[in-house]
Amino acid sequence: MESRKRKDGNGLNTADVIVKQRVGGRSFRQILPYVCLLPAFLFTVGVLLYPTLKMFHFSFLNWSFGRGYETAEWNGLQNYTWLFASPSSTLFHSLRLTLLYSGVSVVAELGIGLAVATLLNRERIFGRVIVLTGFMIPTLLMPVMVGMMWRMYMYPNGMLSYFLGLVGLKINWYTAEWAMPAVIMIEIWQFTPFFIISLFAGLRAIPDEILDAAAVDGASGWNRFWHISVPYLRPIIVVTAMIRMLWLLKSFDIVYTMFTGGPGSATEILGLSIYRALFLARDIGRSAALSVILAVLTLIVTYIFVRFIYRSREAMERSL
């Protein structure tokens, strides 16, 4: 512990020294950080541990929903092998849809968000604060109600159909072909503002001197954007995209209220396939196995992004 600190080059700070003198021992000072973590730890890990273990446990069972636990049979890895190997398994279909859904949403939100944030960052914008505040609103709305709202608008006699009709478009959103674009569009509508706000904050944080210096050196607007603003924004872009990606991977609400995974299985992303395995196929084991797969997928993405954040932060610190 002691040598670790010296290696960090910071040594003891005053507070540490004082506490050490006051309490008169190393032991209390050493366990204090852990004692402070205890309440939070108990109510997160403590609450989640048993259900998580149950999730793993159930994934090895052959157990029908609605029947007593005593009817459950140990099934080994069969739920997993069925999901990965059976021709009637929708796992890969769901994975593909999930990646499509989250990938397209994040990329589109990032693109539009960056463009609008750059526009907002012009020298003089009338009512900039009001605009920023306004952009907050869609991100705050209850996803279930957002799904319901768009469901009403996308009916053939709904508001969206009317306005699309004005420009000569006639789309039946309730077909296998258009259901996925519909939910992606709703996601983009609701969460592009999240990117706008956070990227705008990032743009604001770029010191004026750097951009001015580049301008004096003769860099064009596009070059300044691409070679100064974007690298500077990179950590914010990654963090925002990470948060969004994780929301999207586990998303359920909007797709559930819009289509409940249908028509057919056109919008059956992973969250929905967990739901469907449980309530339509009434198979607790397979549903739990899908849950494990989703949890692992989420963890992998989180881990990659966390590594990336640490790396980009180190790179930033080195370059400063």
Binding site: M55, K250, F252, I274, L278, S291, V292, L294, T298
Partner: peptide, 9 residues
């Protein structure tokens, strides 16, 4: 952690 995974447990 995805909520939907843990709903049944």
């Amino acid at each position: 952690a995805p909520l939907i995974s843990l709903v049944y447990p």
